[in-house]
């Protein structure tokens, strides 16, 4: 399963607007996407679920692992990587 390791640099972490943007982007792809809080070593959750993403408690500077499987998996990973690399468009 393709996956990628990233560091969340936004000051809010995966919370508030960044969390919403993250889920919205993931939701635009048909494949299954999961995200894992590597820093606190928590199990992976559905990246399209805002509540699940919030319960990961990802703060600024945390490392996350995103995995995708199925149709457009590579494109989905790229889109989420870009979103985080561009600091959620800020």
């Amino acid at each position: 399963m393709p996956s990628t390791l990233l560091t969340v640099t936004h000051s809010a972490g995966l919370h508030a607007r960044p969390a919403a943007e993250f889920v919205k982007t993931a939701g635009a792809y048909p494949c299954q996407i999961t995200v894992r809080n590597v820093t606190d070593d928590k199990p992976a959750v559905n990246a399209k679920s805002i509540l699940s993403v919030l319960t990961l408690g990802v703060n600024q500077g945390y490392q996350i692992e995103i995995s995708a499987e199925g149709e457009s998996a590579a494109a989905a990973l790229q889109a989420l990587t870009d979103l985080i690399a561009n600091n959620f468009g800020e």
Binding site: A20, V45, S49, I50, S52
Partner: peptide, 16 residues
């Protein structure tokens, strides 16, 4: 306003 936009997202949450 974003607070209530987030509440709408909860209602659309696939896992929930």
């Amino acid at each position: 306003a974003a607070i209530f936009a987030a509440h709408q997202l909860f209602l659309e949450d696939a896992e929930l």
